[in-house]
Simulated assay, not measured.
Amino acid sequence: MGDEENVFELIGEIYDAALDLTLWSDVVGKAGHFVGGAAAAIFSKNPIAGTGNVYYESGIDPYYRELYFEKYVKLDPATTGHYFADIGQPIAMADLMPHDEFLETQFYREWAKPQGLVDFVSAVLDKSVTSAALFGVFRHERDGTVDGEARRRMRLIVPHIRRAVLVGRLIDLKSAEAATFADTLDGLSVGICLVDAAGRIVHANAACHVMLDAGDLFSTSGGRIVARDAEIDQTLQQLFAAASDGDVAVGTQGIALPLIGRDGARCVAHVLPLTSGARRRTGVAYTATVALFIRKVALETPSPPEVIARTYRLTPTELRVLLAIVEVGGVPEVAVALGVAETTIKTHLGRLFVKTGAVRQADLVKIVAGYASPLIG
Rank of each mutant, 00 (worst) to 15 (best):
T343H: 13
V35A: 01
S219L: 09
R162P: 07
G148R: 09
F34W: 13
A49I: 08
D363T: 03
V165W: 15
A178D: 10
H209G: 03
G370W: 02
T275P: 04
T145Q: 11
T22I: 01
T79K: 07
G187H: 10
A324S: 13
E318A: 09
K366D: 12
R151S: 04
G144K: 05
D95R: 10
S122M: 11
V250R: 00
A207D: 03
D119Q: 05
S373C: 09
V165F: 15
A298E: 15
E141P: 06
T235N: 09
E13Y: 08
T252S: 15
P332L: 04
L322Q: 01
N6Y: 13
I161T: 06
A372K: 12
S44G: 13
D126C: 02
A298S: 14
G37E: 01
A40G: 08
P316F: 02
E4G: 11
I87C: 00
G199D: 05
L352G: 05
S128Q: 10
C193R: 03
E231L: 12
D213S: 12
V27Q: 03
R279N: 15
M211A: 13
P316E: 05
M97P: 06
I192A: 10
D172R: 14
A288V: 02
R360P: 01
H160K: 06
K45A: 14
V7L: 03
H99D: 11
A38Y: 00
I42S: 02
A78N: 11
H99K: 12
F102R: 07
Y72K: 05
E101S: 15
L10R: 04
V331S: 04
L299Y: 13
D263Y: 06
A335Q: 07
V202F: 08
A179D: 14
A123R: 07
C193M: 12
A78G: 13
L185G: 02
A214D: 14
A206H: 14
G59Q: 00
G148V: 06
K127V: 06
D100P: 04
T343S: 15
G88V: 04
S58N: 14
V271F: 06
E342Y: 10
L239P: 02
E13A: 13
K355V: 02
D245R: 15
A150H: 10
G330Q: 08
D247L: 06
K127C: 05
A150L: 02
V334H: 02
V54I: 15
I255N: 12
I345C: 02
A256Q: 11
T51S: 15
G223F: 01
M154F: 00
K355E: 07
G50E: 01
A214C: 09
